[in-house]
Design a protein around this nucleic acid. Sequence first.
DNA 1: CGGTGTGAAAGTTTTCACAGCG
DNA 2: CGCTGTGAAAACTTTCACACCG
Lengths: 236, 236
Amino acid sequence: MTDQRTQPLQSSDLPSDASVPKVVVSRLSLYLRELQRLVASGQQTISSSQLGTLLGFSDAQVRKDLGFFGQFGYPGVGYRCDELIRAMRDILGTNHSWNVAMVGAGNLGQALLGYRGFGRQNFAIAAAFDTDPAKVGNVIQGIRIQHIDELAATVREKGIRLGMIVVPVERAQEAADRLVAAGVEGIVNFAPVTLVLPAHVQNVGVDLAIELEQLSFAVTSKLARAAGEPAGAVEP
Amino acid sequence: MTDQRTQPLQSSDLPSDASVPKVVVSRLSLYLRELQRLVASGQQTISSSQLGTLLGFSDAQVRKDLGFFGQFGYPGVGYRCDELIRAMRDILGTNHSWNVAMVGAGNLGQALLGYRGFGRQNFAIAAAFDTDPAKVGNVIQGIRIQHIDELAATVREKGIRLGMIVVPVERAQEAADRLVAAGVEGIVNFAPVTLVLPAHVQNVGVDLAIELEQLSFAVTSKLARAAGEPAGAVEP
DNA sequence: CGGTGTGAAAGTTTTCACAGCG
DNA sequence: CGCTGTGAAAACTTTCACACCG
């Protein structure tokens, strides 16, 4: 591969092109999170093996993952944290801020309106919507709950590109349809249902009960293994 | 493989043994969720290709995934939804109910106390803890917030095996240490930090900002691809 | 020396394709 | 016939191991 880099890469060098495996992108977010913590604690550089150890990955994996996007390291030194953070944010798209539209202002929605973690990664819930007349007009965490009929206009007005669905499961598809009609490009769905969406709309599902279920499996199967359950033949 | 099954499998036939890929287990949860929806709408049987189509997987993948755990289908017919649901819950460990201890009763924690989705999958938040004297003693969604010093005793008393961390990021590790000391076997962590845990404690992390970040990447890179960004060579 | 970047090898997961069954 | 269960092939991901660099 053509190369004679000495200075840090520009973000414009990023591929963004060939399909990077999803699992690599999810580790990228973990690298970024850890790097931000390291910088906050004063660390300037880090090696792939240090970073990997902190997260439970191998050094080779860290290097390969980063290698999908460019060359960020300095042989003999490692990675400069601040540079790598900037590069990762370029890759992930969070060097600019994102306005998000929230649909559903129930318990969970209201809690998410106050969640500080979004802002730290450059996401702002710029508007929130509900159909319940008892909620519309209320101001929560500085955001006035609007009627969902105002969604399309507000999305346009505020340059909103991402939506978040926090309605009860039986109204989730309708909320999704509304967000799509309003022109949103991606949706995070907290309702426990698989949405039907056009292919051009990106989609991330978060099912809180499923997370517990995965834990249940892990605990249960670890137990079975410890009990010496041998190979899984069906017959005696 | 030895086999002459005609009747549905008993759950005791489950392997629980060889390492089933994590990604398979996560799809299991999606299958289960979809099956529950189907049963609720009156459907009795389903084929692997129908189920796959609903979730965006291939028929072969559905069959292979289920094949890790046993034989559940009827050739020419498909799977009987109620049977398959029971089998999946056996596998995932949710045919019995789980008591969960929540640490942190802030905005998000309080919202999760009221989340109906947990109960539907057989999880109950049986106790909630905080250090804030202004919160301890309050009753939220029928749960009295206890001081965290009562954690170990309550875990024992109520047979709690799973913990949920919903404290601010800087207190997450301490919360984890407390849960581990109390004897919990698995932890769902909503704080944006990688916990250091003993190997025998299972661990699922949910970082809400990272979910948005993944969406940001998907939207950004889809855009780049549409713009015809070619292969990612660094040099002109 | 301590570290990256990267081909090649090993390992894992998905897809294919088809025998077999009710 | 319609569909499962499953080996075998293909595709993908991770690990290894080493040239190269400051």
